[in-house]
Amino acid sequence: MSTLEQHIDVGVPIGKAWDSLHRVENYPRFVDGLRNARTQAEGRAHLGIEAGGRSREFEAEVSDREAERVMEWHTTGAPNLTGSFSLQPIDESHTRIQARLEYEPGTIRDTFGGPKGFAQANAIERLVRSDLEHFKEYVEQER
């Protein structure tokens, strides 16, 4: 299992960042390759992804530890992906968002195609970094 952690500081209060992360239907605005997303009952989300020339549909379970400002998620089927977003206030108008992704490299390659080994890790790191940058733009424009 591989683990990737990235963080970004955004220029909005923690409450605004937290609320924006919970609007799953807006994820296609800042997550590369996500065609559609919708919230379903009982903490579930449906995601339509296009990556590596392949279209896939996924279900994910989402849970919150609101007091700690941690949102955790995991896919309910293949591929087995697990992740979290942890939010920490920097000051009244700035928040640090820590993204964590756990994945099996072989499963990612089988599901989405792409490079192997170190090149794959670099590609996933670039993708997560880009998505965080897009989230920053998205949440800061919504002021």
Rank of each mutant, 00 (worst) to 15 (best):
Met1Asn: 13
Gln6Tyr: 07
Val10Ser: 08
Gly11His: 12
Pro13Ile: 06
Pro13Lys: 11
Lys16His: 13
Trp18Gln: 10
Trp18Ile: 08
Val24Ser: 10
Arg29Val: 00
Arg29Gly: 02
Asp32Leu: 04
Asp32Ile: 00
Asp32Arg: 07
Asn36Glu: 13
Ala37Gly: 03
Ala37Met: 03
Arg38Gly: 14
Ala41Glu: 15
Glu42His: 15
Gly43Phe: 05
Arg44Ile: 06
Ile49Gly: 02
Glu50Cys: 02
Arg54Pro: 06
Ser55Leu: 00
Ser55Glu: 11
Glu57Ser: 11
Phe58Lys: 07
Glu61Asn: 12
Val62Met: 12
Ser63Asn: 12
Asp64Ala: 10
Asp64Pro: 07
Ala67Val: 07
Val70Cys: 07
Met71Asn: 11
Met71Phe: 04
Met71Gly: 10
Glu72Gln: 14
Trp73Met: 07
Trp73His: 10
Thr75His: 11
Thr76Ile: 13
Ala78Ile: 05
Gly83Tyr: 05
Phe85Arg: 08
Ser86Val: 13
Ser86Leu: 10
Pro89Ile: 06
Ile90Gly: 06
Asp91Val: 06
Glu92Gln: 13
Glu92Met: 08
Ser93Leu: 07
Thr95His: 03
Ile97Ala: 02
Ile97Asp: 04
Gln98Glu: 10
Ala99Gln: 01
Arg100His: 09
Phe118Gln: 15
Ala119Val: 12
Asn122Leu: 08
Ile124Leu: 00
Ile124Arg: 05
Glu125Tyr: 05
Asp131Val: 01
Phe135Pro: 08
Tyr138Glu: 00
Glu140Gly: 12
Glu142Ser: 15
